[in-house]
């Protein structure tokens, strides 16, 4: 599992996390959502040993990634939003660098490249942004690391590639590994992400299983909001699209995210099965 225990982290004098607590269990594909600057990338990098916490403990399957020992680095994999491309073809990269990861599955790597329509003989450095990203994702998912951190993996992917990515991610999710995906494009992946963690203001605003979207929440189109357990609502020409604190039609993850950062207390109350309290549409701006 991946564990953040009282983690404090700052860029210079600007604190980002103070006493951050989070645990992610093996077998899960965690969706990490947050506004720009919320610290999603930094959280992934802390988990991958690419950044060091100022205090507190980051553990990946019982080891500190910040130690950067060969064993830890082979067991974690971080794919940045804009991955670097080596001046090698994917096939040559596999021959030369695959050996550093003992659990690397060469067959899976090749089949993912084929699925993503990435030319295994072309230099990665000469590939487009989307192609480089697919190469990096294929390397990460086939690398056998038990902790995989993907930063905005669907950015820059065309529509067919997003579908391919979803299939690859579903296939790569195994009971012994944690895949953490940070994304602004929640709709691209919402059927795969479970649990969902919302990061806001340097803190974990909430963490909930995907099933909560249907067990605790629902979305309805309403002419008015009176008497309803409204968490958040958006007005349009025909009335309101409201996120309600009651089970029903599966709520949209993007709407749930907007609700969570707009009315955190009401959202948390709804997840816990409590009444979200009165809703004031005029106070619905992001906090």
């Amino acid at each position: 599992m991946v564990r953040f225990d009282a983690v404090t982290f700052a860029y210079g004098k600007r604190p980002l996390f103070e006493g951050l607590e989070l645990a992610m269990e093996a077998g899960s594909t965690v969706g990490l959502l947050g506004l720009n600057g919320a610290g999603k990338t930094s959280l992934l990098k802390l988990g991958a040993g690419a950044l060091f916490p100022a205090s507190g403990l980051v553990e990946v399957f019982g080891k500190r990634p910040g130690s950067r020992s060969a064993a830890v680095l082979a067991d974690v994999c971080f794919v940045p939003e804009d991955p670097w491309g080596p001046a090698l073809s994917p096939e040559t990269w596999l021959e030369r660098y695959g050996a550093f990861r003992p659990a690397m599955d060469a067959g899976l790597f090749r089949s993912l490249l084929e699925e993503f329509a990435v030319d295994p003989g072309k230099s990665v450095a000469k590939m487009s942004y989307g192609q480089r990203k697919k190469f990096a994702v294929a390397a990460a998912l086939a690398g056998g690391s038990r902790a995989v951190f993907l930063d905005e993996p669907t950015n820059g992917l065309d529509i067919p590639s997003k579908a391919q990515f979803r299939r690859a991610l579903a296939a790569a999710s195994t009971p012994d590994r944690v895949i953490v995906v940070s994304t602004h494009q929640a709709r691209d992946l919402e059927n795969l992400l479970d649990p969902v963690v919302i990061l806001h203001g340097g803190k974990i605003l909430c963490s909930f299983p995907a099933s909560a979207l249907s067990d605790r929440l629902s979305v309805e189109r309403l002419p008015g909001l009176e008497g309803r357990p409204v968490i958040y609502a958006e007005r349009d020409a025909l009335g309101w699209t409201a996120l309600l604190a009651k089970p029903g039609s599966c709520a949209d993850l993007e709407l749930a995210f907007t609700a969570a950062v707009s009315r955190p207390e009401a959202f948390r109350a709804a997840l816990e099965g409590r009444n979200p309290g009165p809703y004031n549409p005029d106070a619905g701006d992001l906090k």
Binding site: A48, A50, R68, A71, L73, F78, P80, W84, P86, F100
Partner: peptide, 10 residues
């Protein structure tokens, strides 16, 4: 970015 790959190579 190339340095990141260097540092994180196991």
């Amino acid at each position: 970015r190339g340095g990141s790959d260097w540092i994180l190579l196991p």
